[in-house]
Structure formats: structure tokens, C-alpha cells
Nucleic acid binder design. Structure first.
Lengths: 154, 154
DNA sequence: ATTTATGCAAATCGTTTGCAAACCT
DNA sequence: AGGTTTGCAAACGATTTGCATAAAT
């Protein structure tokens, strides 16, 4: 692991612990492990994937912790329409804005980004639409549904 | 109801019955009623909303019928992330391409469209992204999450 | 007559919740 | 001690499924 990754990781945990402290919640080992795995995987994952290992915490704790982390803006829930919900680190924690490639065959979800110029153009359009409808926007999604490379190969 | 609406409606039912016949399925009264309500409501609705009236068909039949209609491309399922799934007439049946305004407060979903030029630009970008990832696209979604006018007023 | 659709009740399965024990400060 | 988090088991709720009856061809 490069030195910069290490600093990033420290900063991540620091940010998370501050946000939890704000709502009188503790940054326990289980929560730290969840955040660590989310950071390492760097794509939206299901809870089974997240705790699936040997020493995982209980499913119920994972659900509870991810809810808490979602409330404080550390984790984002991805609406992929599949059986299991998927979670990833929130955009304002990792500092990027991205979209999703959702494989309808295996359920896997990957992130992608578009050029800033395109993103600004899309957002401009969306702001106009929202204004016309008296709608207050909190976020938007631009997702691709289809078949991923692995599933096409088969 | 204007004469053109009537013709549209006849064509709709005709199209649906053909698609069902292709897979040896019958266009029963219950299915016709579902399609009619979907056409009238013209926005993604939940199954309770759809059968909620007095003479509705059984929930299980509604689920089964909507699955069949989805398989033949008459109905589309909307991934809104809320408790109930939502359904609407598929784009290639109604002949338009649209996106969704999803209210996180009341769950209601509205359709909106963007200018053809913007849509083409977005699709061009998405095609490029998909190609880079070896991803075969079947559809895309561009949805706005936030608070609708009614819920903001409260 | 034969196949498909329906309604009802029961089963499924991801997610949530109650509660007592373990944990942190 | 005083509050929070955890694990386990039970509860929930949307969706699915089995099966016998009704409807369509």
C-alpha cells in the first residue's frame, strides 16, 4: 500500500468517526471493518458480500450499522432493483460523483464517471426539469442496465 | 374521450394481444384491465394502486400478469427503491422515452422527457462508456430523487 | 377436451426488531 | 454505573408459489 493510500485511509476513518460522534454514535470495530471493506471493494456490494467472510458480524448488525452510516452520509444505498440491496461509500465521503453499470445477468454493479463537461450539461438540464415540476432535487442517478463483459462471454 | 384516443386505445390492446399470442398467452379481462389502468394513469404505479379498487383481481394474479406483460415487453418495472415495486407501460409500447422524478417523501413517481438533442448527447456518452467496459446496454435510467411539490408544501 | 388463468392460502426471503448479554467511556 | 452495540431468534412484509377451480380456445 502506498503512503498516500494510507493517509487516505486514515482520513476516511477520521471523517467517519467525526460524523458518528455528531450523533452520539461510536465508531466500533464492526463499523470500522464495514467501512474498510467498502473502501477496498470500491463498488456497490450486497450485505452478504460485505460480511460474507468468516469473522463477519451478524447480518442484523450489518443492516443496523449500514443504516446508521447511511444516515450520517457515509454510506449510500444503490437502488439496483435486484434481490439484495447494495451499499457503497457515499460520494461526499470519497469525493467523486459517479454512475452505475448494472448487470442484469449477475447483478454486479460497477461505477463509471463521465467528463465534467458532460456532467455539468446533464445537471443543467435536470435542474431546469426539476424547477418546472416544483421538485427539490437531492440527487440523481444515471445508470446503465445490460450485460457485463463476464456474462456476455459465457 | 376524443376519437384519436379511442383509436390509440384500440391499437394498444391490439399490440398487447399480439405480443401475448406470440408466447401462447391469453389476453384476459384481468390483463386488459391492468393495461387499461396503466394507460390511463400514465405514470409508474404500485400494485396496490393498480388493483386497489373494488373489483380488482387478486394480488397474486396481478403480480403474475405483470410479470408476463413485462416478459413480452408491454410493461416496465421501475426501480424506485421504495417498499413497493412500480410498473408502467413499456417505452416501446407507448412510443416515447422518458425519465423519472422520484419523491423520497411520498414515493410518487412522475415521468419527464428531455430535449431530443440532449438525449442523443447523453446516449452517445453512455455508448462510449459501455464500449470501454465491454458492457452490452439494454436500457438506461436517468432519474431525479428529491421532494415533490406536494410534499414540499407540507 | 385441453390448456391457461384465477383465487386463496401457504411458503419464501431480504430486512427489521425485541431483548438480554457484552462493550465502551 | 450509564448508555450503546451486538447476536440471536422471532417478526415483518412484499413477492412468489402450490393447488384446486374457473375460464378461454
Amino acid at each position: 500500500m502506498a503512503a498516500s493510500d494510507l493517509r487516505d485511509s486514515e482520513r476516511l476513518h477520521h471523517d467517519v468517526s467525526l460524523r458518528l460522534r455528531d450523533v452520539d454514535q461510536r465508531y466500533t470495530a464492526g463499523r470500522r471493518r464495514l467501512v474498510e471493506r467498502l473502501a477496498k471493494l470500491a463498488r456497490p456490494v450486497t450485505i452478504p458480500e460485505l460480511v460474507g467472510g468468516a469473522t463477519g458480524l451478524a447480518l442484523s448488525s450489518a443492516y443496523r450499522n449500514l443504516s446508521v452510516l447511511e444516515e450520517v452520509g457515509v454510506v449510500a444505498r444503490v437502488h439496483s432493483g435486484a434481490e439484495h440491496a447494495r451499499f457503497e461509500l457515499a460520494e461526499d465521503i470519497v469525493g467523486d460523483h459517479h454512475h452505475h453499470l448494472i448487470c442484469e445477468s449477475c447483478g454486479r454493479v460497477e461505477d463509471f464517471t463521465v467528463a465534467a463537461k458532460v456532467e455539468r450539461s446533464i445537471e443543467g438540464t435536470l435542474d431546469r426539469v426539476a424547477a418546472e415540476h416544483g421538485f427539490v432535487v437531492t440527487s440523481h442517478s444515471l445508470d446503465l442496465f445490460g450485460t457485463c463483459e463476464d456474462c456476455t462471454a459465457t
